[in-house]
Deep mutational scan, measured.
Amino acid sequence: MAEQVALSRTQVCGILREELFQGDAFHQSDTHIFIIMGASGDLAKKKIYPTIWWLFRDGLLPENTFIVGYARSRLTVADIRKQSEPFFKATPEEKLKLEDFFARNSYVAGQYDDAASYQRLNSHMNALHLGSQANRLFYLALPPTVYEAVTKNIHESCMSQIGWNRIIVEKPFGRDLQSSDRLSNHISSLFREDQIYRIDHYLGKEMVQNLMVLRFANRIFGPIWNRDNIACVILTFKEPFGTEGRGGYFDEFGIIRDVMQNHLLQMLCLVAMEKPASTNSDDVRDEKVKVLKCISEVQANNVVLGQYVGNPDGEGEATKGYLDDPTVPRGSTTATFAAVVLYVENERWDGVPFILRCGKALNERKAEVRLQFHDVAGDIFHQQCKRNELVIRVQPNEAVYTKMMTKKPGMFFNPEESELDLTYGNRYKNVKLPDAYERLILDVFCGSQMHFVRSDELREAWRIFTPLLHQIELEKPKPIPYIYGSRGPTEADELMKRVGFQYEGTYKWVNP
């Protein structure tokens, strides 16, 4: 592979701008107003304001973009700056750019259920340069409990009458099928589907988006991507930290609602779906819905739930269990780990287990898709061969690698495990991989909904998990304890083995 010439960040961002501006969906010269509902909250200060700053800094926003914060707290732009700027990672050389960014910011205080507050917000936006005809993007960085009041008031008082209007809704989209349907029906009564952007930030990850290209742009994968060759698929999300004093919020939802029903299920769809007619948003989402419709409700015998306990040999936070978090209700049975087996009941995947695993306070930070292939028929190497695996590593250190057998150097035919490896950090030294939120917010500006969740996708996802969630809430089974920093409950490994996964433990990928 030829040595790549190092590029400056300015040059890299210039390439990104060229890609972005050559499309006809990006209205570079139009006025846009980006409204952050819930501007005083954690999500706004840690993710949304920093993301908008990065896009502005790199010249990736339309030229005439204004940012308006809205929340109940009586704040000023200076207050917003004070709480969000520490997350910007701005350099001293960017000081003038930073001043320009905050000059485009404003803030309006108001209630979430008060019509007069929204009329005041609308008047404020109209007073901005060309504000009355601007395109408006409303980001709901809010708890779902206020979605209905907020969307109703936005629709009645704050819509642009000339430009387009788009609304970005953060997960969780309800707690179960019934609450999700209620919320979807409410929002759909106010906005068209092409105006609604239900954001799952995992769909903005580079390697998640790469799944489609790997599958449908490489001839070698087509013939082997089926039940005849693939023994099982494992989708993993692991965090090495616990709730760390923020367990009160987590306890309301648990690990299945927080990660599995959305992030992991979306990745499953991209692995299992048929080739779409095109890369058009609805063509892709149509195929994802077909996959979900082929999955039956989760069966309790295919589920393992766990909850982390303190590690007596650990240090600091590792010595504390979930129930030691003062914000967690006493005696909570909320799971911090889950392993679930699903089956896609169609011709391509009949009988292939899709194993979804996620948890907190585990032994490493990792998100990946792992396809394990069947054993080689007619073994001539005296059971020395391990199964081939194709691994798409989402985070950290984005990579695609194939675990395969090669001859060990020497005189004899002794096979050993090795890999074919594409590590993004080595291959793409001159490429700026956008943060997931950067990519998705740019998608909203461009009107691309491919990486957002459609209402029928959402409904099918909740259909699969709601009976299990209701059973857990009714019966309150005690989750299996696992030690902070471990791989999780051993019962999860036993479940995976029972459905056909072979864990060798003899080879570990190392970032080159």
Rank of each mutant, 00 (worst) to 15 (best):
L20S: 12
T31P: 07
H32C: 07
F56A: 02
H186N: 12
V213M: 13
L211G: 03
S179C: 04
F56R: 02
V108M: 11
A149M: 14
K47N: 05
S123Q: 12
F21M: 12
L128V: 14
L16M: 08
L96H: 08
R136P: 01
N64H: 10
D113E: 09
T243P: 05
F216D: 02
R215P: 05
I230K: 01
L121R: 01
E193K: 02
L128M: 11
W164S: 12
R104G: 11
I48D: 15
R120F: 11
E206W: 07
I33E: 05
A115V: 14
E63L: 14
L98D: 03
V146Q: 13
F102V: 04
A217T: 10
T65H: 07
Q195Y: 06
S40W: 03
G254L: 01
I67D: 01
L7C: 06
Y139H: 05
S180I: 02
K46G: 06
Q119I: 06
S132H: 12
L7T: 14
K97H: 08
L214V: 08
A231V: 07
L60R: 08
Q209A: 15
L128A: 11
D58L: 09
E239D: 11
Q22S: 06
N218Q: 00
S179F: 03
F173C: 06
I162R: 11
A134Y: 12
A217E: 02
K89M: 15
H124Q: 11
M212H: 04
D100G: 12
Y112A: 03
L121G: 01
E94M: 06
V233H: 01
L235F: 11
I220S: 02
I80K: 05
D251I: 03
T76L: 06
V213N: 05
D24G: 09
I67L: 09
T151C: 10
G38V: 00
T236I: 07
R166W: 00
R57A: 08
P240E: 09
T151I: 06
F21S: 14
G163V: 06
D181K: 06
R74G: 10
A127I: 11
Q11Y: 11
F102E: 05
C158E: 08
E170M: 01
G59N: 14
I162E: 14
A231R: 07
G14M: 14
F21V: 05
A78I: 09
D42R: 01
L20E: 07
L55D: 05
T145Q: 11
E170H: 01
E19S: 15
F21C: 13
G131K: 13
F173W: 10
N165G: 12
A134V: 12
G23H: 15
G247H: 06
N153V: 05
S179L: 06
E206V: 15
S73L: 00
H201N: 03
N210R: 00
I48N: 01
L211W: 07
H155R: 13
G41N: 02
R182K: 14
G59E: 05
G247W: 08
G254C: 08
C13W: 07
I36T: 03
L55K: 03
S157Y: 14
W53K: 00
G110F: 02
L98C: 06
A109I: 09
P143C: 04
S8D: 15
N126C: 12
H32V: 11
L96S: 09
T51P: 02
K89S: 11
K95S: 11
R74V: 15
E156F: 11
L190A: 13
I36R: 02
I35G: 03
E18W: 07
V213F: 10
P86F: 08
E99Y: 06
E239K: 00
D24T: 13
K47V: 00
H155M: 14
V77I: 14
K171H: 02
F216M: 02
E244D: 14
K45D: 03
R219Y: 06
F66Q: 12
L61I: 11
M159K: 14
D30A: 05
P144E: 05
A115L: 12
R175C: 09
A39W: 00
N122R: 10
H186W: 06
W54N: 14
Y49L: 13
C13S: 15
G163Q: 12
G254Y: 02
K45P: 06
R120V: 09
E85T: 15
N64V: 07
T145R: 05
F101T: 02
V146E: 05
S117I: 07
F66C: 12
I255M: 07
F102I: 11
L7H: 15
E63P: 14
S179E: 04
V213L: 08
D194S: 12
R136F: 12
F237W: 10
D42H: 05
R227Q: 07
D181H: 09
A103V: 11
D79Q: 14
L121H: 01
D24R: 09
F26G: 15
V208I: 12
L190H: 15
F221A: 09
N105E: 00
F138M: 06
S123C: 08
W54F: 09
L140D: 01
R17E: 13
G38P: 04
F241E: 07
N64F: 12
E99M: 08
K152D: 07
M212E: 00
I168E: 02
D30K: 10
G38L: 00
R182Q: 14
T236C: 07
T151D: 05
D181I: 02
F253S: 07
L60A: 06
I35M: 10
V213A: 12
L121S: 01
D181Q: 14
N210W: 01
R257S: 07
A115K: 15
A78H: 15
L75N: 09
G131D: 13
I187H: 07
D113V: 06
K171W: 00
N64Q: 10
S40V: 02
H129G: 13
V233T: 04
G242V: 02
M207C: 07
N226Q: 12
A71D: 02
F102N: 03
L235H: 03
F26M: 15
C232T: 07
L16S: 14
L7V: 13
Q11M: 06
Q11I: 08
L140M: 11
R219A: 07
P143T: 03
S29W: 12
Q11L: 05
I234W: 04
F216Q: 02
E85I: 14
F241S: 04
K205E: 01
R219K: 08
S106M: 07
R57I: 07
V208Q: 04
D194T: 09
G69M: 05
A44E: 00
S106N: 11
I224K: 04
A103I: 06
R215Y: 02
Y49P: 01
D200K: 01
Q178M: 13
F221H: 12
R120C: 12
V108F: 13
F216L: 00
P172H: 00
R257T: 10
A78C: 13
S84E: 10
H27G: 13
A141L: 04
L61R: 00
Y202S: 02
N218K: 02
K205A: 05
L211I: 11
F173K: 04
I187W: 08
R57E: 04
S160M: 07
S40Q: 00
N126D: 12
L140I: 12
S40K: 01
G254S: 03
R81L: 14
P144I: 01
A6W: 15
P143F: 02
G222F: 08
I167H: 08
T76S: 09
I220D: 00
T236Y: 05
D176R: 03
L190E: 07
I162C: 11
Q195F: 04
G14I: 10
I187D: 02
K82P: 11
Y197C: 01
I33T: 12
K82E: 04
Y249M: 03
Q11W: 12
R9V: 14
V108Y: 13
E19H: 15
T65V: 12
P86T: 11
G204S: 01
G131V: 11
V150A: 06
R227L: 05
S179I: 03
V146S: 05
I33C: 06
Q119E: 15
F173S: 04
L43W: 01
I196D: 01
A217Y: 03
N135E: 10
F241T: 05
L61A: 03
G69A: 13
Q119D: 13
F88M: 12
T76K: 13
Q195G: 06
H124L: 09
N105V: 05
A6D: 15
A39V: 05
N122A: 15
F101D: 01
K45Q: 13
P92K: 08
S8W: 04
I80H: 08
I255A: 08
G245K: 09
T51R: 08
W54R: 11
M1K: 00
A231H: 04
A217M: 09
A25S: 10
I52V: 15
L130S: 10
I36N: 02
K205L: 03
F101V: 03
P50F: 01
D200A: 01
F237D: 00
D200M: 00
E94R: 02
M159Q: 11
